[in-house]
Design a protein around this nucleic acid. Structure first.
Length: 213
DNA sequence: TCCCAGGCAGGGC
DNA sequence: GCCCTGCATGGG
């Protein structure tokens, strides 16, 4: 599979996706946790709620009541654990970095990734989304859509790190390309795979698949 | 009514 | 180490 060709074709078919849709780095971080196992539409509602209550910054979120945060993010599901997790993240940034997200993110890439992975509720995908979209560092996140996409090309049995490495070794080392391709693969999955998410053969439009093969 | 959505953690084996 | 389950709301 020629990932550069994949990128070019998807970009031509769908246009730029402008991910991650967020106004601040902190919003990316919170959004990355909220979007776990739910739809982006519900995350948008939760983010709107948090903004309305002026909670979408480390200090406010850390000092807020758990109940209020739970109420604001309820539409995203798993709201009790997510509330706890974004509040712990906030407290971590407040206690360790004076509330400065920028200072927290400003460190060598692999060290940042390790720190993120040590936080509750932050696994590989969430950590890598934050590294790429909040810290603007080269890291290719592998999500469910990307796995399905890869299965289409016989890469179904590769684990997270193997897939990430595969993308990173076959793409130009440009943050913008990483950001767009990750978003475009999700767009592709959402467009052609709404009813049968596990169907490998439809995880790519036939026309697109033919060109890539 | 049933299935799923841009995962993660904790337990059993 | 891998596999299973709980977490929970909202939309198709």
């Amino acid at each position: 599979m020629d990932l550069v060709r994949v990128y070019e074709m998807l970009l031509k078919d769908f246009g730029r996706q402008f991910w991650w849709p967020a106004e601040t780095q902190f919003e990316v971080m919170v959004g990355a946790i909220l979007t776990q196992q739910t739809t982006w539409a519900s995350v948008e509602g939760a983010v709107r709620n948090l903004k309305r209550e002026k909670l979408l910054n480390p200090h406010s979120l850390a000092d807020s009541s758990v109940k209020l945060v739970e109420t604001m993010i309820r539409p995203t599901g798993f709201y009790k654990q997510k509330a706890k997790r974004i509040m712990k993240l906030s407290k971590y940034i407040v206690d360790g970095y004076g509330g400065s997200v920028n200072r927290f993110l400003k460190r060598p890439k692999l060290e940042l990734r390790r720190k993120l992975l040590s936080l509750e509720g932050v696994g590989f995908e969430t950590a890598d989304v934050i590294v790429l979209y909040a810290a603007d560092m080269l890291m290719f996140p592998i999500d469910a859509y990307t796995r399905r996409f890869c299965s289409r090309f016989g890469l179904g049995d590769m684990d997270y790190e193997a897939l990430r490495t595969y993308f990173e070794e076959n793409l130009p080392r440009e943050v913008q390309v990483y950001k767009e391709l990750h978003a475009l693969i999700d767009k592709l999955g959402k467009t052609y795979c709404k009813k049968t998410p596990d169907c490998v053969s439809c995880s790519l439009s036939r026309e697109c698949a033919r060109k890539i093969d």
